[in-house]
């Protein structure tokens, strides 16, 4: 097959179509920066999807659990060995994504005799100030999108992944319009964005949801899904309390607004 370029291109595009179909029903995962840190939020049905990677880094993923697990272990090993050999300050999401993850994902995707990673990942790294928060989206083919790695670009204070491109656009449009002041309103915004993303993933929903439709949709989905939310706390460089799950007591008042 390798000596027939056309067949290779065909195989790659089949593979892309297959993976996109598999990822399409995935529930969006959202990273949103606010004054005290970064909120990571998603809703799931059966398994955990937001993970601590290192002192200032966390990860969320949609796709096959086995593949997400392999990539998660890779991230923890990379960060831990770097942090041990050099220092925690040398562990950087930018380096990890650019030099390790992107090439590994691309190689697996293009080696058509091997299995690709069926996964789409969102990484978040909390900075000393909100302007330094970094979000990186990595796709199964190694494609990378960051909120801020090039100069002169307007920085987004969020990052997200969704099952489909349309879903992602909806999530991002909700997030980019929001003004975030504290955890409570970050939670509220992220839940809305999640709902809008999941709504748009449905092929019957060509248009963005109107307010009453979104409310109705969220209400019905909250009955099927359970929330998962964690915060990467800002300014804890010297301590171990970077990644903290948001306690039930903080989630309940916000969730009840949508029920």
């Amino acid at each position: 097959m390798i000596d027939e370029p056309y067949r290779w291109v065909e195989a790659i595009s089949n593979r892309r179509e297959y993976i996109e179909n598999e990822l399409a029903p995935g529930s969006p995962t959202i990273g949103l920066s606010f004054s005290d840190g970064i909120l990571l939020l998603t809703f799931g049905r059966d398994r955990r999807k937001i993970f601590e990677i290192y002192d200032r880094i966390a990860m969320g993923g949609i796709g096959h659990p086995g593949d997400i697990e392999r990539l998660r272990m890779m991230a923890i090993e990379l960060a831990s060995t770097e942090g041990f050999t050099r220092s925690a300050a040398d562990v950087s999401l930018r380096r990890m994504a650019t030099y390790s993850f992107s090439p590994v994902l691309k190689q697996a995707f293009e080696q058509i005799y091997g299995a690709p990673y069926l996964a789409r990942l969102l990484f978040a790294e909390v900075g000393e100030s909100q302007e330094e928060d970094l979000f990186v989206r990595l796709d199964y083919d190694g494609a990378m999108h960051a909120n801020a790695m090039s100069a002169g670009k307007r920085r987004e204070s969020f990052g997200a992944i969704a099952g489909t491109r349309r879903g992602l656009e909806q999530v991002e449009s909700v997030l980019s319009r929001a003004k975030i002041s504290n955890l409570r309103n970050a939670l509220e915004t992220a839940i809305r964005a999640w709902g809008a993303g999941l709504y748009a993933s449905d092929e019957d929903h060509a248009e963005a949801p109107e307010e009453p439709a979104l409310k109705q949709f969220l209400k019905s989905r909250l009955e099927q899904y359970t929330i998962e939310a964690a915060v990467l706390e800002r300014g804890t460089a010297g301590s171990h309390a970077g990644f903290v799950e948001v306690p039930e007591a903080d989630l309940e008042p916000v969730l009840s607004k949508f029920r």
Binding site: S80, F84, H240
Partner: peptide
């Protein structure tokens, strides 16, 4: 001490 500190964290992060 460094190995120990990283070992406990590594265990917590990887094994949840």
């Amino acid at each position: 001490a460094r190995i120990l500190e990283h070992s406990f964290q590594f265990y917590r992060r990887s094994q949840l």
